[in-house]
Design a protein around this nucleic acid. Structure first.
Lengths: 191, 191
DNA sequence: ACCTGAACACCGTTCAAGT
DNA sequence: ACCTGAACACCGTTCAAGT
């Protein structure tokens, strides 16, 4: 059975999601694909190259597609709500996201996390600008909101088994919107 | 030169802070202490036992001491501000914290992260109860506020080098307090 | 072009032997 | 009680040799 480079990348991404960059190991992955390590080294220069290829795929899925889907929503509060409902989807789907965001200390991963962070905080700042905040304040709030998201994904990774109910997710989303994008009257009072 | 168990734990904690659980490696640490791996295995059953011991020390430093220091502050908004100024101290000091919080996918680490998470979210929920929120809402908000902290520490880990200025830290803290614990008038308007 | 198999280095773990 | 040194298994990397 002949393997393509993409087959290895897919297996690499699976390993990345289950145990972080350290779990992207040549020999175990080769064994899971029923090939030898020698075969791996025909497709890739080294372990880092596989990790990089897997992260490229993740970056595509994690930013481009999401943002292209949300960009058209004109009303900023609705755009934020749509974003949150993606962010709070099923915990299992967030595993890969959480593991990658948590691996910034790995130099290979760091480059990707930095780029994704910049894209996403810019997107969130835009929401707050559209809600009427001055650009400096919108930037700070965009960063804080993104930190909240990152932390949430992180916490979901260790939450012992119990999947949150649909109702409790809605409650958290409502609370987050009332915290970060309170209605006009309350917002005006603060200035 | 004879080594104590504590010497190994100290070295293990340093390794943990610089590269995560995967960096807590027997042979390199032995080399750094100018001892052999055999010596290590007299003090510890295996690698996991060293990691556990290092995490125990971290847990002590990271929760007990901080909370004991803040508990006596009666005014909840001041308590929150004091907590934030600890949370936003120098990035270098937060490295270990960030690396540990980010390693929840490691089963040895997970147990510690879960316990610390429970302690800290309970502490934060208490702040919001003392601010007058009903307990359900205080719990949700405590969790969101802690997620924000976790995300912030995470983002600090990959922020390319540039230490934030004292002024920009104050700005973020002010913004967080106005978001999570708005003044009485604004809070009343929301209900 | 794509893969195997053997080789070597590095790290985790064990253990007999030393002080 | 505390440590060394050699042994073995596992994984990353290289490379000559096979199809």
């Amino acid at each position: 059975v002949r393997l393509s480079r993409e087959d290895w990348v897919t297996a690499g991404l699976t390993a990345l999601g289950s145990g972080g960059p350290g779990a992207v190991m040549v020999e175990p992955i080769a064994a899971s694909l029923q090939a030898t390590k020698g075969s791996f080294y025909w497709h890739f220069r080294d372990r880092a190259e596989l990790l990089t290829a897997a992260l490229e795929r993740w970056e595509q899925l994690a930013t481009q597609s999401v943002i292209e889907h949300l960009e058209p929503i004109a009303d900023p509060r609705m755009r934020l709500r749509a974003l949150l409902s993606i962010a709070f989807r099923d915990e299992d789907e967030l595993r890969l996201e959480g593991v990658v965001l948590a691996s910034g200390h790995d130099p290979v991963v760091a480059e990707f996390v930095e780029r994704v962070t910049a894209t996403r905080t810019a997107f969130l700042s835009r929401v707050f600008v559209d809600l009427g905040l001055p650009s400096g304040e919108a930037k700070v709030r965009g960063r804080i909101a993104y930190a909240t998201y990152v932390g949430h994904v992180q916490l979901g990774l260790t939450d012992s088994g119990d999947q949150p109910s649909r109702a409790s997710i809605k409650r958290v989303i409502d609370e987050m919107i009332s915290i970060f994008a309170p209605d006009g009257a309350a917002a005006r009072r603060k200035r």
